[in-house]
Design a protein around this nucleic acid. Structure first.
Lengths: 154, 154
DNA sequence: CTGTAAATGAAAACGTTTTTCAACTGCGAG
DNA sequence: CTCGCAGTTGAAAAACGTTTTCATTTACAG
């Protein structure tokens, strides 16, 4: 089940939230992007169409979407406040391209063996984990830029 | 080889950096703690002994230590700018206690199988990963607090 | 001891996130 | 279709966290 702006809108309504033009614009921006976006980046994108939407509204909408589990946070690449539409329903992790910021999903994560081992070694009772992979996506591998010419993922 | 304040001091000198009382105080604070600490937390700790050390100096020292690979950054628990003395020399990961903030190390990390699989699936050329485990350390499991009574790890 | 480059602290500048508040509006009740 | 109000918005201000600037101080090589 892929989330679209429309579907997310329906979720909001069903939860008693209003579907405003501002929220719709933000939903479109987020669902349209394959990158992870910072609040400011979302604001800039949305602004092109929707001139005087406030950055505050972006923050508030992000908070809402995160609460409802509709977006994911990405840590890699220096920026800890970068968001992405939640694509797989299940537990999953992300691969972040350090070239263009594109994010791919990865659902078959099995860390249970490692968790057990670590648990035994340290005595910790583990209840969650954070896992992200960084690298270059197919198209950035081809581009094969000289160095330090990162474009996306500001 | 466990890092002590003294050893880190030696590293700094050998690299041409000066060993000031302020830096020494920060080194002691960091090496003494088993938690991950934010810049502000380090500042507060150091201040107790060294009344008018500036927060700026803490930031500058953290930057220096990170550059030299002597401290690690911890992401879990909401705070993305939290630091910890680097303990194992080798590649390793962290287990963070959500009760008290204590961090344990974990060196036997083998994600290469998973990396290969994901690489094949997505076409990404993976070159690094971020992995952290969260849970309760042995002593916080015993405490078994009601809920929401997190003490450390601000 | 001395000279000098490195380091420090205070203040200001900055960018990001949150709070406040008056004005506006989506949408359900009628 | 209209009305009313709770939910939502934008602007401005406040609150943070981090970086820059600059004059002063200091570690330490010589």
């Amino acid at each position: 089940m892929k989330l679209t702006a429309r579907k997310i809108g329906a979720v909001l309504k069903s939860r008693g939230y209003r579907l405003t033009p501002q929220r719709n614009a933000i939903l479109s921006a987020v669902t349209a992007s394959h990158d992870h976006l910072t609040p400011t980046a979302i604001h800039e994108k949305v602004r092109r169409e929707h001139k005087n939407i406030g950055l505050v509204t972006v923050y508030r909408t992000i908070e809402l979407l995160a609460e409802l589990g509709l977006i994911c946070e990405v840590h890699s690449g220096g920026n800890c406040h970068s968001y992405l539409l939640r694509r797989p329903d299940q537990h999953h992790h992300h691969l972040i391209c350090s070239g263009c910021g594109t994010v791919a999903d990865f659902t078959s994560c099995d860390l249970s063996d490692m968790e057990q081992k670590v648990s035994r070694q340290t005595g910790f009772d583990i209840n969650s984990h954070l896992l992200e992979f960084m690298g270059l996506c197919r198209s950035c591998q081809k581009d094969d830029r000289p160095e330090g010419s990162v474009s996306g993922a500001k």
